[in-house]
Design a protein around this nucleic acid. Structure first.
Lengths: 315, 315
DNA sequence: TCGATCATGCACCCATTCTGCATCATTATC
DNA sequence: GATAATGATGCAGAATGGGTGCATGATCGA
């Protein structure tokens, strides 16, 4: 919202409301107070001469006209992003504020280095990083609080490919590695297959989480049913369990082992090498903006380096 | 500018500046003071992080980036007009303010009745009519001071057909009639040809005016060179000259004879019936707006009625 | 019935932005 | 070459718009 936004901020507020459904949540996302959001929407209806909202129980709900306006405004936003990107490119300029969002691992492993790189290459740009889950990332993109989000594909309610508000680029395929105690019988191997580990006690995330489904998908692919011994929420915990010899686990290569002792990371070989796809999402039309293009390059280089170096570094 | 404009007003100011070339003229058109325009443009450059203007002598001039932004913003404006029109249509609503512009005859003969009709059919809409020449009409359209302009085709520097900012609809082909003293030898005829009047003393507008070129074009078409006896600026004057028996003249049928005595209006027959085409111009994308569609209908019906009834009324 | 959840109105306050005037730079005129 | 005219801009002051915080009202669940 603080960016050079030529579209009336109240329209952005309406779009955020369309996503959240309540005035309060819209206020939280946009950074306004609830009464400000309420007033903005009322004013918007006045100047446009349209009824956009109706009372619905204790809340409010978009009318058909309101939904129409929100849907149609996608093209308007895209058009503006495109224009801004092109003009910046033509004038060899960059915007003064740049917001980044991403989930925990991405924020630490990818966005923090990116912010550092931009601070040296573009010292005049004020960079802000927000750690947020994928769904909130999309909210923040719509609310124009951030300009680029790093998320795990398929891990949000939003279907980026089809949504006219966003476009995305694959940053990397983040393979899952096996982590096992350093004194494990297979720990000295270069690679293992999931079949070889079928009878091991596994440590995983709680059922229902996105990582758990990644876990089961990996074993389903090779036709093996693993024995789940323990459950953890944070990777730190999971790694600690493994270090204590309580079992083995899967860890995305992007996630660092940290300073943990007694844990070895092994590449998975054989068929069905599980991975999660990590993508960068931006508002549609903005992908050719100089700052975003530069950032995508930095992110991809950084991701590649992590993927190739991590195994060697940690062994 | 007072309309439901979702695009930052400062961008509109920039667009008006691109048309006028000076801060002062932009201020006059937009209704701001010159210092406000100056401040707006400065602020616009700041928030966009682009240099849009450079000093040029005692004035300022758009940079390449500025021209790029203005050109590219055409699509943005069109997109917004389209969206607004569609949303209004979907919700069966109309905007609260409606600005009309047109040249003198159109303002009196077409726009005034239109305003009256709208006042009864849409009492909640605040209608404003501005009399202005065609070029200024386009300026006012860009500045969003008016939403619909009635102009004579080919009578402005702006080539409406090609300009991505406007679209137009033909309202009527306004034929030129002959006016002559009521005691003239041909005054009792139903129609005359220009050939029959070749030797008459003609009263016309000053050379260089658009009506003068219409005049010469009419005679060039039939291969006759008229004798120009007198020149007038206003039609009122021309009609008075004719009434005084000083000669004959051409008058668009849309222009009323008024209360003048001793003047007869005759239809022109034969080949090369001269006429001027009168069109309605709107901002691109807005033509399907309910209020504009309704207005175009009223204007066309009104124009048709005038064309068919005027001769009978006045004889 | 009571509490929780949402939206909204109101009083107040701050920031943005406009106006009017003065000033400065440049160009035209005599 | 002096002087007037034109055009842009900076500054002080004022007004308007838009924001926050709190109180209120309405609806739903327990």
């Amino acid at each position: 919202m603080q960016n050079g936004c030529m579209i009336d901020p109240r329209l952005t507020t309406l779009r955020v409301f369309a996503r959240t459904g309540t005035v309060g949540a819209t206020a939280e996302l946009t950074g306004y107070s609830p009464s400000a959001v309420s007033a903005q929407l009322r004013e918007l209806q006045r100047v446009l001469g349209m009824q956009l909202l109706t009372k619905d129980g204790r809340g409010v709900r978009l009318t058909a006209t309101g939904r129409f306006l929100v849907t149609g405004s996608d093209a308007l936003m895209t058009e503006w992003e495109r224009l801004r990107a092109a003009a910046l490119q033509a004038g060899d300029q960059v915007q003064s504020h740049f917001g980044l969002g991403g989930f925990s691992t991405a924020a630490a492993q990818l966005l923090a280095p990116l912010a550092a790189a931009l601070r040296t290459s573009r010292p005049q740009v004020e960079v802000q990083v927000l750690e947020a889950n994928p769904d909130r990332c999309f909210d923040l993109l719509v609310a124009e609080r951030i300009d680029l989000a790093v998320i795990v594909a398929m891990q949000s309610q939003t279907y980026v490919e089809e949504d006219p508000r966003f476009e995305q680029t694959t940053l990397l395929n983040d393979p899952l590695d096996v982590i096992l105690p350093s004194d494990h019988r297979l720990a000295s191997r270069a690679t293992v297959t999931l079949e070889e580990l079928a009878t091991e006690p596994w440590i995983t995330e709680a059922p229902g989480s996105t990582y758990h489904s990644l876990f089961t998908a990996a074993f389903t692919a090779v036709g093996v049913t693993p024995r789940i011994a323990h459950e953890a929420v944070e990777w730190e915990t999971q790694i600690a369990f493994v270090g204590a010899g309580m079992g083995v686990g899967l860890l995305p290569r992007l996630a660092p082992l940290g300073s943990t002792e007694n844990v070895t990371r092994l590449r998975i070989s054989g068929q069905g090498q599980p991975s999660r796809r990590i993508v960068a999402a931006v508002r549609k039309g903005s992908i050719s903006s100089p700052l975003i293009k530069e950032s995508l390059g930095i992110l991809q280089r950084r991701a590649k380096r992590i993927l190739t170096e991590r195994l060697e570094d940690e062994v």
